[in-house]
Design a protein around this nucleic acid. Structure first.
Length: 585
DNA sequence: GCCGTTTTCGGCCCGACTGTTTTCAGTCG
């Protein structure tokens, strides 16, 4: 059982206990434990096998440790099994309904035996819900509205989709009269691969005019709440947009607060408290000061809040990049004054994964070269599909060798200014064989190996296929190593810890596929690769000249994993990369 | 349930908004 599964079980346990009204701090403890376990590069299963003391991990105490041991050794958690006899797991669906939290859901379960969305909907329609104490007509209607939202796709947006919504909102809001500052916060600003809602932060002396403008956004479906400083709307596509209007003196504190993540903020405020300070969205305050009592930044006791870096500075921390704010390593780095200089788009010198019209790409090699040159790149690899990918017109050896002759001619034309690598995205067949002969692969400049078929195989089979490819002398990198498609297809079963250690041993690279639909590896796997010393290649997998712009999505993902220029191979010249392939890192 | 450079007990981040209320609980972020 891997860390993610263990974390999921702990979270389920916390949610079901919450339903039963358990001590909130106990739930917090389980959820903290789950996050620590999910983020850790070390396998819990391995730690249990070697009788390691799990309570040495901060956030894991006696109880969570015992549950981990039980899960690893037996595959189940008795306490979870027991509680599921009392509370059916389907009740967790109820918690996805906006306006319905654990307290109200528990009442509905207890009083009306409601276990799922279908039963809840019927109870509302039959006016059973509004008869309950603490519920009334408005609450019943709010639940009914919420069910419709929960039944909708209810997915998080991919970051690139959120980016488009943000652009539209910015265009709509930026010329509001008397608008002093406008910023987008939340998981969008943290660059998370998917975004749950959009958070807008505004400084203006006139709250009404800003909120009225948001209320006229063309894609608006409904206004959820509107108060003095806060407004929430729902868009036609179901997504929520939150607006906060704050005074100029509070902008930094509010930006920090609404950027999150929640666990990052909890840690920051915890540190503030130890220094007799309190941080909220209005600023940093001396505890017990008049301003703290009044929440009025103009009074004494206000310490900081105008700029985000002032907030961090007030608790003796350097400004921390939003991409790192997940309460993983950033505070330890900040304490040691070792925050990394994160990778930037300008650091990238080449793109080592793209397709041409020879297979399923939309542009010719010459067009891809021109587009790459326009972006300032020094080299590209044309990595068309191999023959196994028949639907894409994958290349057999004859066609591949012909393409390489074409590339020779182009390189002769280009001179020393730009280099096109003779490459291939070679499939790892279901039986573990490479899709092209060793002789042909040996002639390539650059070989990426990837899995497109047999993705339902067992964890062991898929892992073995990838480990075999890593060992192949001609393979340089494994592309989109987990095969996931965001919001569409989960990762296939693969032992990433084994892949990472094998890549290290054989000096091969792992790809961060920058396509906004993939972003594969994810931030956690990238972090583990960095910690293990495995080098990463970030590439676009472009199927057209436009696709080359996807590099920026990969940069954000890499930054979230704390990657710097030195962790990423294609920040180097091609000859430097070539010298690194197959050299254990 | 977890934690500790004030603590092995006593605290655990913090505030806005809504609805059902006579002063606050629930939900959300």
């Amino acid at each position: 059982m891997d860390n993610a599964k263990i974390a999921q079980q702990l979270e389920n346990l916390a949610s079901l206990l919450e339903f039963q009204g358990a001590n909130p701090f106990r739930l917090k403890a389980y959820r903290t434990g789950a996050q620590v376990i999910r983020d850790s590069a070390q396998s819990i299963a391995d730690a249990v096998a070697s009788h390691e003391d799990l309570t040495a991990w901060v956030g894991v105490g006696k109880s969570v440790a015992q549950k981990c041991i039980e899960l690893v050794q037996t595959g189940t958690m008795q306490q979870l099994v027991e509680i599921q006899k009392e509370v059916p797991p389907t009740v967790l669906d109820l918690l996805r309904v906006p306006n319905l939290g654990p307290k109200k859901a528990a009442v509905l379960f207890k009083e009306l035996q409601i276990e799922n969305l279908e039963q809840l909907k019927r109870a509302c329609q039959q006016n059973e819900v509004q008869k309950l104490k603490g519920f009334a007509a408005k609450t019943q209607q709010a639940i009914l509205d919420g069910i419709a939202i929960a039944e909708q796709a209810n997915q998080r947006m991919r970051w690139d989709q959120a980016d488009q919504v943000v652009d539209a909102l910015r265009m709509h809001l930026q010329d509001v009269p008397m608008l002093k500052r406008l910023e987008f916060a939340g998981s969008y600003r943290r660059g998370k691969e998917t975004v749950g809602d959009i958070d807008i932060l505004v400084v203006s002396d006139d709250h009404t005019i800003v909120m009225d403008r948001l209320g006229s956004f063309p894609d608006l479906a409904s206004t959820i709440v509107r108060g003095g400083t806060k407004m929430s709307i729902r868009l036609e596509n179901g997504f929520q947009v939150d607006l906060r209007v704050v005074p100029e003196i509070s902008f930094g504190a509010a930006l920090q607060y609404f950027t999150g993540s929640q666990t990052h903020n909890v840690e920051l405020r915890h540190r503030a408290k130890q220094q007799n300070l309190k941080i909220n969205e209005w600023g940093v305050f001396q505890i017990g000061s008049p301003a703290e009592l009044e929440n009025n930044p103009s009074l004494d006791g206000w310490v900081a809040g105008k700029e985000e870096q002032d907030v961090y500075q007030s608790v003796s921390l350097p400004w921390i990049d939003p991409h790192l704010r997940e309460n993983r390593e950033e505070f330890a780095w900040a304490d040691a004054d070792q925050l990394p200089k994160l990778l930037e788009l300008e650091d990238i010198r080449g793109d080592l994964h793209m397709h041409s019209t020879a297979t399923d790409g939309k542009n010719t090699i010459r067009e891809m070269i021109q587009a790459a040159q326009a972006l300032g790149l020094q080299y590209i690899a044309i990595t068309d599909h191999s023959q196994r990918v028949a639907v894409a017109g994958g290349l057999d050896e004859t066609r591949l060798l012909k393409q390489w002759k074409e590339i020779d001619i182009l390189n002769a034309e280009l001179g020393t200014q730009f280099t096109v690598l003779k490459s291939i995205e070679c499939d790892i067949r279901e039986n573990g064989d490479m899709d092209l002969s060793d002789d042909v692969l040996a002639e390539a400049d650059w070989v990426m190996a990837s899995i497109h078929f047999g993705i339902k195989q067992s964890r062991q089979e898929i892992t073995d296929r990838i480990l075999g490819a890593i060992e192949h002398p001609s393979v340089s990198a494994i592309s989109h190593p987990t095969g996931r498609l965001l919001n569409r297809r989960p990762a296939y079963e693969v032992d990433m810890a084994a892949v990472i250690s094998h890549a290290k041993k054989y000096g091969k690279f792992l790809e961060l596929n920058a396509s906004s639909k993939r972003l594969d590896l994810n931030d956690i796997h990238l972090t583990h690769a960095r910690q293990a010393g495995v080098r990463i290649v970030i590439s676009t997998d472009a199927h057209s000249t436009d696709g080359l712009a996807s590099m920026r999505y990969g940069i954000i993902q890499a930054r979230r994993a704390g990657l710097t220029q030195q962790h990423v191979v294609n920040t180097r010249s091609w000859p430097e990369i070539k010298a690194m392939i197959g050299v254990p890192s």
